[in-house]
Write a protein that binds this DNA or RNA. Structure first.
Lengths: 223, 223
DNA sequence: GTCTATATGGAGATAGAC
DNA sequence: GTCTATCTCCATATAGAC
């Protein structure tokens, strides 16, 4: 049965890698399940046996990517960056570089804002991936000795994650050569984000911070 | 030929209203083009003759909605609100109320972040609608005698429009009873938005504002 | 458990009737 | 120009072979 399981694992891997190659070459929409099956030399049904839908292939890619990214991100966080801004910059650019070859595939993921859609970054299906990803921002924040306001601090990782998702979304659809608009966006927005976090500690900002925390509680709190 | 044109116009209207009714009843995804054609008593091809795709029906709905909304929004803006916050609140709630019966249909619009997809609020196809909509925020800003910083002012309508789109997106997928979470989100976020705009006039905020304007220039500027 | 052959039903395209 | 009948291709489902 080891044999069987192993053979199965190989078939699964073959189908996934074939699919990813085709997605890369022709894009997600253009590639059909029939093509994937034919190219991998299995019947169409076999493809569905391993991946219950075309979307499931993308989800598998997403999960695999996150697993491969984890050590890369850990390594990035282990480096001695001079401040939060530098760490965030390193985290985000590492991800963009990693996803570069499959940029068009990511659009299949980014295309869905509907939290009910399994491919949405906000869906239940991608919850585990999302929570791990948010964790990396927690670490980026914790690497500083600086104290963030107690009321705001618990929300910051999720806020930074949303910021990152915005950047990635922009990048996915960025048609400029080498996606240079995205990098300009990153260079311009990152200082604002970190500056705002710094400002939030000022007594003058107390009222605005209070409003912001209330807003975040409303978003993440119960109905 | 008046007859012909008129008959045609009637068929078109019939197909559109039939489609919208079905979308309302069963949702966008569940409704098939075949059903629409059958219910409207025309051949499938006729439906495609008037609307080149299922998405085109939604776009037609969007355009029609915007046309119907325009006088409503003008009326709202004509009322004497006490400040920007009140005007924005009125604008946004008016839209939400108007779209209430077709909330699920809006998800077909909101589902696409891809600016290349015609149903995206950022697409070329919806540019005219978008620009008119941004105009209403321009008017909401102009109704005040207050001067906004000259560097930031030109960007404010588009920024407020994005804020509105965020609220609408949240509303579309809000599963809480009566979408009360969205209204809480609106009550909590609107003061922050207007407060930030006020703060932006402070000399202390000059550096941050400068960064923000640079960011906006990068977003809306050329490649 | 793994996989094949075949079926279903839908979006969209098209040739041509009127 | 308006519309019908029909076709193609696709995602997905399923019965059952091995």
């Amino acid at each position: 049965m080891t044999t069987k399981t192993q053979k199965s694992e190989e078939t699964r891997a073959l189908i996934l890698s074939t699919a990813l190659a085709l997605f890369r070459e022709q894009g997600f929409e253009k590639t059909t399940m029939r093509e994937i099956a034919a190219e991998a030399d299995v019947a169409l049904g076999a493809t569905y046996y391993y991946f219950s839908s075309k979307d499931a292939l993308v989800l598998a890619f997403y999960a695999q990517s996150q697993a491969e990214l984890e050590p890369l991100l850990a390594e990035v966080l282990a480096r001695k960056h001079k401040n939060l801004q530098a760490r965030l910059h390193a985290l985000i650019t590492t991800k963009l570089e990693y996803f570069q070859p499959n940029r068009s595939l990511l659009s299949a993921l980014a295309a869905h804002t509907d939290p009910g859609h399994s491919l949405s970054p906000f869906s239940e299906d991608s919850r585990a991936i999302r929570e791990r990803d948010i964790q990396s921002f927690q670490q980026a924040l914790d690497a500083d000795k600086v104290k963030y306001p107690a009321d705001l601090a618990p929300h910051l990782p999720a806020v930074l994650w949303i910021y990152q998702m915005g950047i990635i979304l922009y990048w996915v659809y960025d048609q400029s050569p080498g996606q240079r608009r995205t990098f300009r966006l990153l260079e311009k927005s990152l200082p604002i984000v970190t500056r705002l976090i710094q400002l939030s500690t000022l007594p003058l900002m107390k009222p605005l911070r209070k409003l912001t925390v209330e807003l975040l509680d409303a978003i993440y709190g119960p109905d």
